[in-house]
Simulated scan of single mutants.
Amino acid sequence: MSNGLQGIHHVALICADYVRSRAFYVDVLGLAVIAEHHRAARDSWKLDLALPDGGQLELFSFPHPPPRPSRPEAQGLRHLAFRVEALEPFIAHLAQHGVACEPIRVDEYTGRRFTFFADPDDLPLELYETR
């Protein structure tokens, strides 16, 4: 269907500490800033980040956001997965920044390797190997 869904345009995240989360997604994960705006009426930041495949990640801050109820099986977004060519180099990069990854697992259906780590708000993030 040519008028149907074509992919994910963006994923939006709300963070507890904007400065800390901005540093994590830009400096640690290496996402490029597209735009950054402070919305004074909402006392809120909105940061648009570019993903290498053309998608975007939107990072929002709001005063006193409620915490995520549980990890990772709460209703709603379970986790956000990033494609990487190889796990080990990116795991090493994260470790240099003090970010721990879970042991590497293998997807029982695809045979692909993956691991989980967390952002500064304990949002579960996944690295999914594509090679």
Results as ranks from 00 to 15, higher is better:
52 P>G: 10
15 C>G: 12
97 H>M: 12
94 L>R: 13
107 D>P: 03
107 D>K: 04
2 S>I: 10
123 L>K: 00
56 Q>E: 15
124 P>E: 07
109 Y>L: 14
59 L>N: 07
8 I>S: 07
47 L>N: 08
51 L>E: 06
86 A>N: 03
126 E>M: 00
100 A>K: 15
17 D>C: 11
47 L>V: 10
41 A>F: 10
54 G>R: 08
38 H>M: 02
74 A>H: 13
128 Y>R: 01
69 P>S: 06
14 I>L: 14
44 S>N: 09
128 Y>F: 10
90 F>W: 13
31 L>P: 04
101 C>I: 04
35 A>C: 06
70 S>M: 02
49 L>Y: 11
62 F>S: 10
35 A>P: 02
61 S>Y: 08
63 P>K: 04
121 D>P: 01
110 T>F: 05
51 L>H: 08
115 T>A: 04
69 P>Q: 04
64 H>F: 07
47 L>Q: 07
66 P>T: 04
90 F>P: 00
131 R>V: 08
10 H>W: 13
130 T>W: 00
33 V>F: 05
42 R>F: 06
108 E>V: 08
66 P>M: 03
12 A>S: 15
125 L>I: 00
122 D>F: 14
49 L>P: 11
60 F>K: 10
40 A>T: 05
112 R>V: 00
96 Q>W: 06
44 S>I: 04
25 Y>D: 06
63 P>W: 03
20 R>V: 15
52 P>D: 11
112 R>E: 01
119 D>H: 04
13 L>S: 10
41 A>C: 03
58 E>H: 15
127 L>C: 01
103 P>E: 03
51 L>A: 13
3 N>W: 06
31 L>A: 07
7 G>F: 07
40 A>Y: 01
75 Q>W: 05
1 M>D: 07
108 E>C: 09
48 D>L: 14
117 F>K: 10
67 P>G: 04
111 G>F: 02
69 P>V: 07
108 E>D: 11
79 H>M: 04
29 L>Q: 09
3 N>G: 03
118 A>I: 00
60 F>M: 14
129 E>Y: 00
81 A>I: 09
58 E>Q: 15
97 H>F: 15
34 I>P: 01
88 E>V: 14
